[in-house]
Design a protein around this nucleic acid. Structure first.
Lengths: 239, 239
DNA sequence: CGTATTATTGATCGCGCTCAAGACCTGTGG
DNA sequence: CCACAGGTCTTGAGCGCGATCAATAATACG
């Protein structure tokens, strides 16, 4: 994983690791220059709250490195993760000035931030930016709907396997056998899956004992047979 | 509820009941004319499948009257509703030609359809159309995230109360006490909530016996105290 | 080292599912 | 009018999955 601390302000967009995936992906160089003029990087530490549920959100941002989560809560403290943001993903909502959910850094992370107002103006002026944001929003919506199927109908074992599949797809360093570092604590996994920490832990143990996965320490994850994991997850094998 | 059968082809957009809410809401008259040139109405009967999961979807549409649902399924038949479309809501996904979920009419419904290709071209040419679709997609995403909190963390009683709140907000005929017709069968409610039919039925009975709601027949619903219902749902009272 | 945090494992409980029966509602035909 | 069928909804009895409560183990950090 790249570390930008210190030299971040100097990084230009052409060298950005998420140049081709983020909201700016389809901007041509002149458009990119407009965005670059209003951007600023911000490093946040694991656990840091970036925006409060119901609080002001006067910027939007792309996740450059690391991992952030969106969570919603009930008054009595029950919480549910409603978004998992990986590098390239977009935070914030143009046209609204308060956050409907809490945004938290799951790991140390770097954000590429834009003040909301100037970004909204650019959104009106740059068709490729608007088109890309629409495309990303529709992808998010599809992902949210898959997630709803998971929350509503899958068993605990299927839920855990599904999350591991998602992580392997998005965070696996290429290599054989496929390997990844879990960006989430057990608590965050439980929040994602609508389960308790204990149940997540038990299912991880069960998948390990059944030979579906191998764990290295608390975060390391290897899976020799992604097809078997997908089957446990009740997903199409189209990994 | 309005019935358009027969005279549908003649209805012009200016008289459309969803003119100010649908994807066309922010189009000026000249833009509207472009849309009007490619639209066609389609009436579907309750229960009719509009698009198959994984099947071709060569059109997009607005729901004019009635109610449609989006559902995703696991291979063994478990299904979860992932979208509930009321008048004004948008069906389909520009830029993708297969449906990632099944689209079904929950009640008799009227759709205002646009062939996908021509609609995509208009999307590129009409900024107000694109802006409105982006806004609607972001609203859908927020709604999906609320729904995820419901699926992951709410009890059966809270889930049922939440659904009744949503219906009262969106479908209640103004009047005191607030009254609405449920557009969903018990089966559809269960699919929405990630519950079984039996549990939905039991919770409806419990809410009735506790005086929170009054049922007229199988579909009629009256609620004298929306605040009490919101409290049962674990929602903010901002109805 | 000691302390705090995070993860695992065990024992028990209870909510919502399953299986089953019966009630109600609607339409059809005699 | 009733008889019957097919569907939808309600109600009951019992069970099992995942939650809860509790203790222990592993890891991180001063």
């Amino acid at each position: 994983m790249l570390h930008y601390d210190g030299q971040l302000a100097k990084t230009d967009c052409a060298a950005c690791p998420i140049r081709h995936r983020a909201v700016c992906a389809s901007c041509a160089p002149p458009e990119l220059a407009r965005l670059e003029a209003i951007k600023s990087y911000r490093t946040v530490r694991a656990g840091e709250i970036v925006a409060m549920e119901g609080g002001a959100l006067d910027f939007v941002a792309s996740v450059v490195t690391g991992c952030a989560t969106l969570t919603r809560s009930l008054e009595d403290g029950r919480t549910q993760m409603v978004g998992l943001l990986m590098p390239g993903d977009f935070v914030g909502r143009p046209g609204r000035d308060t956050a409907p959910y809490e945004v938290t850094a799951a790991t140390d992370a770097v954000l590429c931030r834009f003040a909301r107002r100037p970004f909204e103006r650019l959104l009106e002026e740059l068709p490729s930016l608007r088109a890309r944001l629409l495309e990303m929003s529709l992808d998010e919506l599809d992902a949210a709907r898959d997630w709803m199927l998971l929350l509503g109908r899958k068993t605990a074992r299927e839920k855990v396997a599904s999350l591991l599949m998602i992580v392997m797809r998005r965070a696996a360093h290429g290599g054989s056998p496929p390997r990844a570092e879990l960006p989430l604590t057990r608590e965050a996994m439980a929040s994602y899956l609508g389960l308790t920490i204990e149940t997540v832990s038990r299912q991880m143990t069960a998948l390990r004992k059944d030979g579906v996965i191998v764990l290295q320490g608390q975060r390391g994850l290897t899976c020799r047979d992604l097809g078997a994991l997908a089957a446990e997850a009740g997903m199409d094998e189209a990994a």
